[in-house]
Design a protein around this nucleic acid. Structure first.
Length: 418
RNA sequence: GUGAGUGUAGCUCAGGUGGUAGAGCCCCUGGUUGUGGCCCAGGUGGUCGCAGGUUCAAGUCCUGUCACUCACCCCA
């Protein structure tokens, strides 16, 4: 093989895999529209500084996973590792907040992280992102989750998924909790923690709560829980979110150990997990990030949102059926080639989808092809038909065929389809 | 960045102890004078990931290397 192959962690999508992605996008547009969300398109490339400031300097994403390079004028640019930073940048830059009080935005597109690929994880991956700016109402948190769930239901997936939810508190209450957690961790027998957790308890104590090593898991069972240390406002907010979810009949699992990888999250945080897609279990994740907009130099506008991993959803969407074409037009004689193309063109104008042969081949091979294409109808055009101004219309389901006048072709196909 | 596993036809995979590469599926053609699916017959397609080494002889053994996969880490 030549060296001109795709780079590690990037993928080419062909049918039927590509149609799964089309399906996910179509459903997203359909569902989000009902909640007043508007689709936006933003660049995949941004100034490196944007991500460093929003995601957090200490996170793995910024430390070692970004595709960062200098452009021809020596400016540091980065292929976006996530979408929220770019959406916020665009929101601030366009001064959208001055034109509407609440903005509900969604976008799809590729993200890039330089990680070791594995199941459910590639270097270029695709997300569906929704961001709601301009409200701190707990009803907004609840509605976002309800909408996300409705979307997953529209894909036919909700049955195998679980919503996990937690509150991370705010700059008011987090420091106090943080200190309690550090105290707790230091009081533990350090030898019993795994190597990573010994490091984490210094660098990022919240992450210890999330460790998968069984001994760490059990040690941490008695750790202080942030939900017990929320300030009155955060507590009230979180309870309000949960109560709407309950009233709406959306079941959830409280996960006091749920922390998120990006620094900007506060208060409500959540993940949708599946146990059927390998070690990377999250198909969607998100939460509230009230201070982010201001931190980026914008107005002090609260916000929340989620990202949904399309490759991970696709792992669950195995039996999406390709849409099939209406007709295949088989050409049986040189003299019929041009005429066939024009007839096919007429059918397409009438709204039918189909293909016409570009060359004369045996009836057998063309019917084989029509069968393989799974078309509803095969049309056959040879010299006999040309002479009489007719065309043969064959129903591939029943095998019944009939010569009709070319003038009545649209009508004949319509009858055939019904 | 760390660990494990796997590289043979487009795909899924066979190829004891070394002896000049196979099956199924797919694709193409034919079995029908202008008729698909099922069946039957035939055909296309491989420098066995790559490079060295051992040997009379390497898909098979050794070394290196690359790629892919899964897992850790981390995350959607």
């Amino acid at each position: 093989m030549s060296k001109l192959n795709k780079i590690k962690g990037f993928s080419d999508l062909f049918p039927p895999q590509s149609s799964v992605f089309v399906f996910m996008e179509e459903k997203a547009r359909q569902v989000f529209k009902r909640y007043g969300c508007k689709e936006i398109r933003i660049p995949v490339l941004e100034k490196t500084e944007l991500f460093a400031r929003t995601i957090g300097d200490e996170t793995d994403i910024v430390q070692k996973e970004m595709y960062t390079f200098l452009d021809r004028k020596g400016r540091s640019l980065t292929l976006r590792p996530e979408a929220t930073a770019g959406v916020l940048r665009a929101y601030i830059e366009s001064q959208l907040h001055s034109r509407e009080r609440v903005s509900k935005l969604f976008t799809f597109g590729p993200m890039f992280r330089y990680e070791r690929p594995q199941k459910g994880r590639t270097r270029q991956f695709h997300q569906i992102n929704v961001e709601v700016l301009g409200t701190q109402a707990p009803q907004a948190d609840a509605e976002l989750l309800i909408m996300l769930w409705a979307y997953l239901e529209s894909l036919g997936l909700s049955g195998s998924l679980v919503l996990e939810i937690n509150s991370l508190g705010c700059p008011e209450c987090r420091p106090g909790f943080h200190q309690k957690l550090v105290d707790f961790l230091q009081a533990l027998d350090q030898d019993k923690l795994c190597d990573d957790c010994r490091r984490r308890s210094r660098v990022n104590p919240l992450r210890v709560l999330d460790c998968k090593v069984p001994t760490c898991k059990s040690l941490v069972q008695n750790a202080p829980r942030i939900c017990d240390h929320l300030c009155p406002d955060c507590k009230k907010h979180f309870e309000a979110v949960l109560s709407v979810l309950e009233e709406a009949g959306l079941s959830y699992r409280l996960n006091p150990f749920l922390v998120r990888g990006l620094d900007y999250y506060q208060r409500t945080t959540f993940e949708i997990v599946s146990s059927a897609i390998g070690a990377q279990t999250a198909v969607a994740g998100g939460g509230r990030y009230d201070g982010l907009c201001k931190a980026l130099g914008g107005p002090d506008v609260p916000g929340l949102g989620f990202a949904c991993g399309m490759e991970r959803l696709a792992l669950l969407l195995t039996d999406i059926k390709e849409q099939r074409m209406d007709f295949y037009l088989a050409v049986l004689h040189e003299q019929a080639l041009n005429k066939a193309l024009l007839l096919a063109q007429r059918l397409r104008k009438a709204g039918y989808a189909g293909e016409v042969s570009f060359e004369v081949k045996s009836v057998k091979s063309q019917l084989r092809l029509a069968n393989k294409l799974n078309v509803k109808t095969c049309l056959l055009l040879g010299v006999d038909e040309i002479e009489r101004g007719e065309i043969v219309v064959k129903d591939m389901q029943t095998g019944v065929q009939q010569a009709v006048s070319q003038d009545d072709l649209e009508q004949a196909l319509g009858l055939n389809l019904s």
